[in-house]
Design a protein around this nucleic acid. Structure first.
Lengths: 237, 237
DNA sequence: AGATTGAGCTCGCCA
DNA sequence: TGGCGAGGTCAATCT
């Protein structure tokens, strides 16, 4: 692998583009750093000027960051057709186009400071906790909901979505909606949509905590139940 | 600005760390590229190994990308305390800690290939469209909802949230809920929550498009109305 | 400081 | 392919 092919500040735009195209042709990730204008047009639109870092992956996906924010300012998901070229004003231009939805992202570098190219790894290793684990924990330990709760099905399909855990309490249908973070009004609404499917059912919202307005609506207005359960309790199991 | 201080593959970990610390001390953005292990522990937890690019901003925010995804694999928002150091095994280690919530992100480089350092810009320029603009457009052009619609208030506070646009039609209260993308069942539920506040009201869901199940519930079950309106129509105005 | 909402959410799963 | 839910969502706004 040739680490010398990165773009340096002294390179002409034409040299820079050649290096970048070569790197992309050999399957490298390319990161460009410099002053640029960014035009995005698609589901929404945006325009920006400033110093950014632009990551171009071999898959065609693009991510653009500015130092002021941890979130990407612009991007293009994998599957986009991404090209790097030079325009009539001798500026390096990155264009990334996707269809369905049709979206166009164009970055024009008025000052390309430098670039980094590197060969991606074949496969990486990833481990993380998920909400599914909490479902399983409750299914295996139904008494955390109610002593009388008998779980029957996880991810039960109904007309308006998936019920996390469905079962019965003393012969009545029981609907359990699980959130791994603080529950809000939207989550109460989700539970209500499921509850509308049944007659005389008992509803539970399970979360590590709940906002006051959400609790008001949940309990006072709908008569559902709140069960406090932290992901950490599940993980320690 | 000294562009020569970037880390090269031939640098020792100790040289690398010195360059990085100097760059960060002078307020530069630092991007590290190499093979690393990533430990995150906080609201959730995760572990990963692989070749990543790590962006460290002067504010302390950190973003970690892998070539396989357009979304950041790990991150730390601005305000985090981020340090770069060397461990007893001569490996470059990035540690980023924040409080409230307490979260720790640690990246250990088993092979730091290279880095890029650059001075961020003082301020960038940003322009983009927002949902507020659509609200204003409807308020100014109420006939897109209904010929009889008379708007009265934008962002009207009610118990369960904010009604986007509130008004009257032939003496009846009218509630308008606006979405800038394809409407789903959740959005119908939101409109319903607002409609529950009034007697004999007329409800409108405004969106560029709507999913079939959402339209079924909206119209057949609740008797509300769907109005097709694209952000692009608003922007052309 | 806490709560709510918007966002080009992306990603994965399943019908 | 479309719909839906999960996510460490973050960032802005207001109370």
């Amino acid at each position: 692998m040739d680490y010398k092919s990165d773009v340096k500040p002294t390179d002409s735009p034409r040299e820079a583009v050649n290096k970048i195209i070569n790197a992309r042709r050999s399957g490298d990730v390319v990161i460009l750093v410099g002053d640029c204008t960014i035009n995005y047009d698609g589901r929404a639109w945006s325009y920006a000027e400033g110093r950014h870092s632009v990551i171009i992956n071999p898959s065609g996906s693009v991510v653009i960051h500015h130092s002021s924010s941890v979130k990407a300012k612009n991007w293009q998901p994998k599957g986009a057709e991404t090209t790097v070229d030079i325009n009539e004003d001798d500026e390096v231009v990155v264009q990334s186009v996707r269809t369905n939805p049709e979206e166009d992202l164009t970055v024009r570098f008025t000052n390309l400071i430098k670039s980094v190219h590197y060969e991606p790894d074949a496969d990486d290793i990833n481990l993380k906790g998920s909400e599914k684990e909490i479902h399983k924990y409750i299914y295996d330990n139904p008494s955390v909901i109610d002593d009388q709760f008998v779980p029957e099905k996880m991810e039960k399909d109904v007309k308006t979505g998936d019920i996390d855990i469905f079962g019965h309490i003393n012969g009545k249908p029981a609907v359990v909606e699980v959130k791994r973070k603080k529950a809000q009004q939207e989550d109460v609404g989700q539970l209500r949509r499921y509850m509308d499917m049944f007659e005389d059912a008992v509803g539970f919202l399970v979360a590590p905590s709940i906002t006051q307005p959400a609790e008001d609506v949940l309990i006072d207005e709908y008569g559902f139940n709140y069960v406090q359960l932290s992901p950490s309790v599940v993980l320690e199991d």
